[in-house]
Design a protein around this nucleic acid. Structure first.
Lengths: 157, 157
DNA sequence: CGATTCGCTGAACACATTGACCAGTGATTG
DNA sequence: CAATCACTGGTCAATGTGTTCAGCGAATCG
């Protein structure tokens, strides 16, 4: 769906200051409260805003090490590998990608030593032929959405 | 920091039903409201919960294509490359990783054709020697935190 | 062209929630 | 033993929420 400029400002505002409510948002944006409520309802039912879940930092939970693993999967074993990885809590994310029938997953671990355990658990599975892991050292751009929202809003006017 | 079982239940509850407030959460968890408030304050000041920002779906915004690009950086050009990528809205995330002085970034685009434009913009920069891109086809495990929170809570008892 | 629909405004209302307190209690610690 | 700590269960005033309403301007459509 397309979002307009007001939608964009609303999302950015909520992203920057999540604690403000509908009423305060309407004051900041200079529109009526009902407008903000209607926009929010629409954005949520359109799926643009999935929700307002807590943003949990794995590092603060005791998992400061992040890594990305590229997996090569044995022909026809995709489904079972997915189920396997789904059962590993340290797998935060899993994608299937173009290329060699590969998968890419994001892992966290308690330490570099612990990462070995996690990788063993992830890779020690029959359907996985080969794996290569890249350990994250820095995160210059943390997961973000604001610039994209601003661009999407400007495309409308 | 370590979280206990109540912290874990609270985070999971908020992740599943973000709209409930402190009062409702205290009812669900069977504890006093003040307890939930104190736990939440502590989790936030410890950085375990970074905030409650809106969870925006790029696909619903008109960017249904996701890709991961691995970049090889020219010696000593890391800082300028970061600044360059930081200025590209379609770059949702950027990590530096072990290996060949490489970076890994997550991209989104409006279409496969648009992805070409995004990649050109990302890669068409002097400090970048080589790039390889993997387009995401499926996302069997979307970014998640609940299993990890449950594990972290159980480690405490 | 006229009628209708749509989104926004500004206001009202009852109700629930919040943030801030407080004293009491049980467990743990020094 | 005394002190500390987290939790309970309660109160209070202030605020925000969900909902509804009539009015209004712009855009759409027959």
């Amino acid at each position: 769906m397309a979002i307009d400029h007001l939608d964009g400002r609303l999302i950015v505002l909520l992203a920057r200051e999540p604690r403000i409510g509908v009423l305060e948002a309407s004051r900041r944006l200079g529109v009526a409260r009902g407008t903000v409520q209607a926009r929010l309802d629409r954005l949520q039912s359109n799926g643009v805003i999935r929700g307002f879940g807590p943003d949990v930092d794995p590092a603060a939970l005791g998992y400061p090490v992040t890594a990305f693993a590229t997996l090569e999967i044995k022909q026809g074993q995709g489904a079972v590998v997915r189920a396997h990885l789904d059962g590993v809590p340290e797998v935060l994310e899993l994608h299937t990608t173009t290329g060699h029938g590969d998968m890419l997953c994001r892992l966290v671990a308690r330490s570099n030593a612990d990462l070995q355990r996690v990788i063993d658990r992830v890779v020690g599975f029959d359907g996985i032929v080969r794996a290569s892991t890249a350990i994250v050292m820095e995160n210059p751009v943390p997961l973000r959405i604001i610039p994209l929202v601003e661009q999407a809003a400007e495309d409308t006017g």
